[in-house]
Simulated assay, not measured.
Amino acid sequence: MALMQRRANVRLPPEVNRVLYIRNLPYRITAEEMYDIFGKYGAIRQVRVGNTPETRGTAFVVYEDIFDAKNACDHLSGFNVCNRYLVVLYYQANKAFKRVDVDKKKEELDKMKAKYGINTEEK
């Protein structure tokens, strides 16, 4: 009870959440190895390891408790795994989808240009 009451009084920075985004992972790392590394800091709800050419070397780790996620982020940033130093960040949806939005807007703009015969290339 004392632990829960103490945690209730702690104010975390706004970017802290239960989902961690990990970069600079060895390409051959497995979900089981991720559970071994990150599970030391608390109960994990889910691990997703990137498996496409664009997402290799990255993973998401979702903790049950936000304080466990913060503890893992604090302790595992810079952790050496197979001579690679992990980059552990808090997942931020607004940043992750910003790039998709830019690509989508460019595609819409290109369609509009084609529809109205606008050519913006210099001659």
Rank of each mutant, 00 (worst) to 15 (best):
A2D: 14
R6T: 06
R6D: 07
N9L: 12
N9C: 05
V10Y: 12
R11S: 11
R11Q: 13
P14A: 10
E15G: 01
V16D: 02
N17K: 06
R18D: 05
R18A: 05
R18V: 07
V19P: 00
I22H: 03
I22V: 13
R23W: 06
R23M: 09
L25H: 00
P26N: 12
Y27P: 00
R28T: 08
M34W: 08
Y35V: 04
F38K: 06
K40D: 09
G42H: 15
G42N: 14
I44G: 01
R45C: 09
Q46R: 15
Q46E: 14
Q46I: 08
G50E: 11
G50D: 12
N51E: 13
N51S: 14
P53T: 13
T55R: 15
T55Q: 13
R56D: 02
F60K: 08
F60V: 03
N71H: 15
A72D: 00
C73E: 06
D74C: 04
H75P: 05
L76P: 00
L76D: 04
S77N: 15
F79I: 03
N80Y: 13
V81R: 03
R84A: 06
L86C: 07
V87C: 11
Y90R: 06
Q92S: 07
Q92A: 07
K95M: 11
V100N: 12
V100E: 13
K104R: 14
K111C: 03
K113Q: 11
K113V: 02
K113T: 04
K115G: 00
Y116C: 01
G117C: 09
G117I: 07
G117V: 08
E121S: 11
E121K: 14
K123E: 10
